[in-house]
Write a protein that binds this DNA or RNA. Structure first.
Lengths: 344, 344
DNA sequence: CTGAAAGCGCTTACAG
DNA sequence: CTGAAAGCGCTTACAG
């Protein structure tokens, strides 16, 4: 026999005597069982040349009998392993996250990256999740929200790509810019004769979001006097409740512009229950371009995000950051695009 | 100095002379830079006791200066690392996948597992993706489709939990059982006076799915004569096209039962365009219980999957399989539940 | 509080 | 075609 079976004495495969062998088999166990050296086991397991068919079969049989699986750590230590991307979303149940994740997962796969998915939306476990994630991946990307603040000091060594950075941030990231699409939407609304638009913003009262401000501004520059209404949470339910009140007014608005598609779905639902025709009585638009927008009735006019482009930039940045390539441009911008459908 | 700086000579941190150091810093580099031993670096990096504040700071500074990140392989080799779940879906753009993934990702996080997400739906890359996945995770779970067949022979050592196994399969997995919910739906339809139901099955002609057969059977046992129509793909578009034809018939059906929610959305859309009232003129139901079902108009009656329960079973099986616990029950069943909403 | 030694499980040259 | 040696980067006892 090539190497002494140091770890598993012959006929004594288990130290504890429990029914199933406790310790996972290693390459040395397989080598001993097959009566070969460990590098011959490597050759057989990894389909490498320079090994006789007979030996390969014997090794593979031994491996199978021992339920042998190469340790990803042992292997990774010498091969380097696939690069790993950690994708952080804030709520996988919000359809925005999966659409983003779908694009990133596919692009990552094409580029040879694996992606670990984490949802920090729920419970108080975000801290623990980020801690465990940062230790397991080469680059973290996603919607960190307030957790972006402490990143530098806590996990500074792990490169971070922000997907929710604001325009002022100097952090590496992909920023979304709705400005041009907002102009297009405002122009469209004016063209079709909108008189009394209301902007449904997802924000605290007296703290209109920058997106909300941009929409208001674009409408005002075209001579309209838009009103802004704040909704506590960007859920369809919250938006529906608020919209239900607004459309009951005597001076009913003729356009409701929601902070995002999810809220717009709630608005559509409120209009339906109030017996209003969309877009006849009132026009509705959202932001994000979620695929469901084509499934609701009427189909939703929206400012769409090109998720594939976001994914492309994300993977480029990830590659740059994990290479530590100096001087790469680490800030990307993706513009929304107006998609006119039935609702506006 | 405690240990010789074998790898990086003083003042010569880079062999190649390129602007950024090519090789990633290791614990030895940090130790050399800080003038301590590697285990002192370990203590500082991992917040362990038994190290003076002054030393810790010096080490942390050196680590930061070198952009040091512990290798997940080096660390994992000795600590074992977090258990890793590989989640395989067939199409992340189909809302079913994210709802499942959301439940599994959360449950996994709660149980201390990391999850790597892979979408094998697109392109011809499934083979490559599964190969790279199986080497990186402890257990693979998901919708393998035809790839489940070759698993045993190719990646046999990696435990697999099938989410799309049929009733006959003996493989570990979580199976969905719509039988009881189908009875409930059939009973409901009869109660409300349905006379001419049509089942829209996602299958080849003359190859009705087991789900389709179960629906037909439940209706027939209640004295109805349901018809089955085969749709080539389970997309809203395909379903809408087929439904549009069916509802144009002189003897219009009064209920359209879709293979899944996605197809039901297409049916709803076709009815809307044909000017039919749902459920007044025709009743519509789907299967899956997707969250979007509450956002469409009318809201969709469906046979809902309890994704949280699927996730719970999945993680239990994963734990059992990675422990190689003998004799565990490796087959679980989750029943659908009838959710009556507006459409039926 | 700090360091020398051993070892985790694998692959990559290098010999034969 | 097969094996002996070295080494990947880290942590865990164990000494001092």
């Amino acid at each position: 026999m090539a190497e002494p079976a140091q770890l598993t004495g012959a006929g004594e495969p288990d130290r504890s005597g429990s029914p199933a062998s406790r310790r996972r088999a290693t390459i040395l166990d397989v080598a001993a069982a097959a009566g070969v050296s460990r590098q011959t086991v490597t050759r057989a397991i990894n389909d490498m040349p320079g090994i006789s068919a007979e030996t390969r079969r014997r090794v593979l049989d031994a491996a199978s009998a021992l339920s042998y699986r190469p340790s990803r750590f042992g292997r990774g230590l010498v091969t380097g392993g696939d690069p790993q991307l950690g994708l952080v979303v804030s709520d996988l149940r919000n359809p925005y996250s999966p659409e983003l994740a779908a694009a990133i997962v596919r692009r990552a796969a094409a580029d040879g990256w694996s992606v670990s998915l984490v949802d920090i939306g729920l419970a108080g476990s975000a801290d623990r999740l980020l801690h465990s994630l940062h230790a397991q991946v080469d680059v973290v990307v996603g919607y960190l929200g307030e957790w972006a603040l402490g990143w530098e000091s806590r996990f500074g060594a792990t490169p971070l790509i922000l997907l929710d950075a604001d325009a002022e941030s100097e952090h590496a990231g992909v920023r979304l810019d709705p400005a041009a699409a907002i102009e297009d939407l405002a122009a469209h609304l004016v063209t079709v004769g909108t008189r009394r638009p209301v902007v449904l913003d997802a924000s605290e009262p007296h703290a209109t979001s920058s997106r909300g401000i941009a929409i208001l501004d674009a409408l005002e520059r075209r001579g309209l006097r838009p009103e802004v209404v704040h909704v506590a949470a960007s859920s369809p339910e919250h938006a529906a409740a608020v919209a239900a009140q607004i459309i009951r007014r005597s001076a009913r608005p003729d356009a409701l512009l929601a902070f995002n598609d999810l809220m717009a779905f709630g608005v559509l639902s409120a209009c339906r229950h109030a017996g209003l025709d969309v877009p006849g009585d009132i026009r509705v638009a959202g932001v994000d371009g979620l695929a469901i927008g084509t499934l609701v009735a009427p189909t939703l006019t929206t400012l769409a995000v090109d998720f594939d482009e976001v994914a492309r930039h994300t993977l480029e940045l990830a590659a740059a950051l994990s290479d530590a390539s100096p001087g790469a441009d680490l800030q990307r911008v993706v513009s929304h695009r107006l998609v006119l459908r039935e609702s506006a």
